[in-house]
Amino acid sequence: MSANTEAAVPATSAMQASPVRQGRMVRLWADVKRNKVSYLFLAPFLLLFTFFTIIPIFMSVGLSFTYYNILEAPKFIGLSNYKLLFVDDDIFLKAIGITLKFAFITGPLGYAMAFLLAWLISQIPVKYRFFYTLCFYTPSITSAVAMSVVWLYLFAGDRKGLLNYYAMKLGLIDEPYLFLQNVDSIVPVIIIVSLWMSMGVGFLAFLAGLQNVPKDLYEAGAIDGIRYRWQELIYITVPAVKPQLLFGAVLQVVSSLTVFDVSIQLVGLPSPLYAGHTILTHLYDYAFIKFEMGYASAIAVVLFAMMIGLNRVIFKLLGRD
């Protein structure tokens, strides 16, 4: 084949591809015009999502390759921030371990608790559901500052702390235990408080989904031989609320990886020997205390990548349909 013929092949391919792209754009524009009312309703959300989510993500990725201290213009330094994160920053590596430990404990436990409590509430009479829903949902909408007052009293490291008072009164310990200063008990305390506050939007989504499962499915199941509640739960309820399960799982991953307020209010910043130091706490330290925005952006990008990875796993498990 001659050189002219070989050169003509890519040109022909490009000419063929161009009408295809143009055809797709024409079809897209025709779809927009046909459904313009729907797109107008979507426009406010799309604008807000673009300006407050999409653009900040790209800006954060860009700033992660720079040195930026707010006062001076960003200076490009390549991968230096990431090298510092994973090679020289021992506190960040420790924060990753603490965050993953926290996520792998509170994530599944909080998820299971939210679903089981929602399922139990859906089994009681309707007139009592609002009261129980309010009781379990209230901690999640109460500020961490307000909740920390109760938990600080419970875990206080002196004789007036509720746990220490009763433990010493029963003769279990001889002197007060420093729950919030001992490096071995800091993470368990944060986990307990976070689980208490984990009945949030995911819990409400589970409850709404469970209350909208068609009754016909249960009647058909009874005809087919289902006799027990746990059989209904496994074979009917769980498949029927799969969209809510996916939604709750995504929320649980995000909340478990972004623990911050509880840790700050209970053990301070920095925590004793950085025992309660999470990735988001590390990000806050560099962004709003040290004002190293380039380095903080690199931390944010790593946290974002972890969220995306875990969410992809969840979508593979629960999002097949």
Rank of each mutant, 00 (worst) to 15 (best):
H282R: 03
K215G: 14
I70S: 10
F288E: 07
Y177R: 07
D321E: 15
F115L: 03
K160E: 02
L303W: 05
A300E: 04
S148T: 08
G78W: 13
F291T: 14
I289P: 04
M113R: 04
S38T: 12
A7K: 15
I191A: 03
N164D: 02
D285Q: 06
P139V: 00
R159K: 05
E6V: 11
I191P: 01
E232L: 09
W151A: 01
P188K: 00
Q252F: 11
Q231F: 10
F51M: 15
I57R: 11
A300H: 02
V183F: 07
F260N: 05
T133F: 07
T237Y: 13
Q181M: 12
A7L: 15
L71C: 08
V20N: 06
W29D: 07
I192C: 02
R27T: 06
A7R: 15
I264C: 06
A95M: 04
P10G: 03
N4L: 11
Y68N: 11
P44M: 12
F247T: 14
G221T: 05
G221N: 06
L85N: 04
A287I: 08
F260K: 08
S148H: 06
F131Q: 12
P44E: 13
I186Y: 00
V32Q: 05
S140C: 09
S256D: 12
V187M: 03
N4H: 13
A17Y: 14
N69A: 13
Q244G: 06
D285L: 05
A222E: 13
P10N: 05
L310R: 03
W29C: 11
E6S: 12
Q231W: 10
Q211Y: 07
Y153Q: 07
I141W: 04
N81Q: 10
V254M: 11
H277M: 09
F155V: 06
V254D: 05
L217P: 07
Y128L: 15
H282Y: 03
F58L: 15
A298S: 05
M168A: 01
Y218S: 07
T278E: 04
N81A: 07
I77A: 12
Y235C: 13
A287F: 05
E292M: 10
F304P: 08
L109W: 01
I314Q: 08
L46V: 09
M147W: 04
V187H: 00
V126P: 05
I234Y: 11
W196V: 00
Y39R: 09
K36D: 04
A208N: 14
F206T: 03
P188Q: 02
S148A: 09
A305P: 08
G248Y: 04
Q231N: 14
L207T: 11
T12K: 03
L303P: 02
L47A: 14
L180I: 10
I77P: 09
I236T: 12
A275M: 06
D321R: 14
A114W: 01
K75Q: 14
G78L: 13
A95C: 04
G62S: 15
L93M: 12
L117C: 07
G200S: 10
Y286D: 00
K127R: 15
R312Y: 13
S13H: 06
H282I: 03
S38L: 11
I121E: 01
I234W: 11
N35Y: 09
G268E: 04
Y153A: 04
R227D: 09
Y235D: 14
S122P: 01
